[in-house]
Design a protein around this nucleic acid. Structure first.
Lengths: 205, 205, 205, 205
DNA sequence: AATGAATGAGGGTTCATTCAT
DNA sequence: TATGAATGAACCCTCATTCAT
């Protein structure tokens, strides 16, 4: 899989040419898919994606042989962003605040990219090998924040990362009601208050 | 044909036509719909419902001329049961406990009748007039319990019934993971702790 | 089939009871069918007919076991009216005028009962045994008028009743254009002028 | 991939993609549609058309996204041929003869391509913008011939092109009876005799 | 590699017709 | 007899996926 050396070892002349446009097309499809899944929901047709990307449907299939593969590719980067954010918050905010901010960031994501809700739902309940990876990554992200808060003595220890993640995602699934975003943020605060070990500082809005 | 009494009973209010099979079929379709909506989500095919119910697709359409009508019929009874339970709990348990029990009852419902999750989701996010009614009814149920707890000074006043209901439903939506039920019950306790005005009594498992 | 006498001859007790409502229902269905076929075209659903008649679909089928049978029954009386009219015109108008009036009467029929066009079309092109009878009857009607005019020396002899009937019906089939009725009447006059043996008296409107 | 000349031809106006099969399929669908619409009327099922054409239903829809589009494609060429013929006859035959020949050509068309009857019927009674165009074209065709005959003093002036066209089409609609074609030709002659201003030359068969 | 034509399964829906009550 | 419930074939149409060019 990896050449490993800087010198051409194989006779595969394929390595040279076909890069530029192939990569551009792949990128275009990803962009289009994000937009289309956001706007039209997860059920959007792949033809619509291809059309928006300005490529043939066949090209889409070359890059992403199944619908799942495309979906995976689309939200993998989102998952990575959230994961990275968790790492950053670990060192940039107090334990409980870091947790709160990360949870809210998720809400933001769903608010701006409707497709994310489905993506997260799949990540948390899907059975495919691909989604398992994403679930693990997100669990690790929230688990790290949670563990730090527990270690600091701020948060009770009997709640698992999985449960918290699942709750978060569930809360975001019903994002079609007016005012859902404010409601979810409010409930996250309530939840965090419930998590606190003692004297839950009632935060003022 | 004969009412068994020996005397002709001609009063037209007598069942003009028995329809043993019609009733049975209607029931079967409802059962099937509950199961299928549970497994396949709200978008499940009506043909699948008919197939599972063991009736022709035409029969399904006769009883429920629109998809909406079927939904409505499926979840109306569940919604009513939950609504009735809330009324009963109002007078049979202490405010916070009543709230907790009702929330848990919802989880039970979803656990035993998978269809409920979809039903609740529809009730909380549907846009049809029918679902609006159901949403209102559930909101009223939880709102009553919430208001009582607030009035008793046990629970903070800045959380709306809508938000609480939506959170509950969201938490139940991902019910395919192993151990989801225990996790949700745990998170509900956390949530209630967060709702308490003071000294959250940490409940022991 | 016919009792023939005024005294009960058969032990078939069925002869007494079931008349009144059965006949009424048959009549109602016929009326409804005429209305529905007129309004909704020939493709109208039989359920719609039954609904309009206020009877069950089963009842409709009891009286008219096939769609064809119903259709036949509906337009048979219309055909009979046209046939009777031809007989009357034979003795009440001059040969050519009688022909003209009868042709126009057909147009009137179609104008007031849209279904008639289809009925006539079926009568002239249908292959079922039932329609053959109607075709024969109408052919005889127009044939009588035509023969009389030929015998009087007013009309050429090389046009068959079938051709004339078919032409008439065809002209009426396109009855959806605005002004079709006046147009058809005008063309019928032209046709009659063409039929005349000599000096076609140009009729003034 | 290579134009065979040995030199790269990059001009984009070159056929970007040959689609031998696509063209063949389109043609097949058109043929099938003509046949099926003829046999089963305008309401014939598109699935039947696809079946007869030997292509998948999806292919039919790709080429003709709506039923209307298929109609349009089917009869446009026929209408054009008839229109062109009218233009040619204007200069190649005496006024009345030109009219007669054109009317007969229509009969021929229907006789050889049964689909034409439906096509003409649609053209004369359809309400879509497409059919209006076709109706206008045919009206213009017959109108030109008619006007020339009127100008020559051969034909009465009080018959409109629309009426004449509609009559012609109606006459051809019932083309399932044996001997219909001879009958229609005969009636067309009668009609033309009726149209003549004076001394209708009785044509011998 | 890219394209887009072809395919057909599948979902929604209607209705003619049969059959149990 | 009258009723209307049940059935399923047939239509329409969409789209995921395959394949020839």
């Amino acid at each position: 899989m990896n050449d490993g050396s800087g010198m051409p070892v194989k006779t595969e002349e394929r390595l040279r040419k076909p890069r530029a446009d192939a990569i551009r097309n792949r990128e275009r499809v990803l962009e289009a898919a994000k937009a289309v899944f956001s706007a039209g929901g997860v059920e959007a047709s792949l033809e619509a994606v291809a059309r928006r990307a300005g490529v043939g449907i066949g090209t889409l299939y070359r890059h992403f042989p199944t619908r799942e593969a495309l979906f995976e590719a689309v939200y993998r980067r989102e998952v990575e962003q959230l994961s990275d954010l968790a790492a950053r918050l670990q060192s940039e905010a107090a334990p409980v605040e870091a947790l709160r901010l990360w949870l809210r960031a998720n809400v933001e994501f769903v608010a701006t990219k409707k497709g994310m809700a489905a993506a997260l739902a799949i990540a948390t309940s899907g059975t495919s090998e691909l989604t398992i990876f994403s679930f693990a990554r997100l669990t690790k992200a929230v688990g790290g924040l949670l563990a730090r808060a527990v270690a600091a003595g701020d948060v009770r220890a009997d709640v698992s990362a999985e449960d918290l993640l699942r709750t978060l995602v569930g809360m975001c699934l019903l994002h079609d009601q007016p005012g859902w975003q404010a409601g979810v943020v409010r409930m996250l605060d309530v939840l965090i208050d419930g998590l606190r070990v003692s004297a839950p500082t009632r935060r003022k809005k």
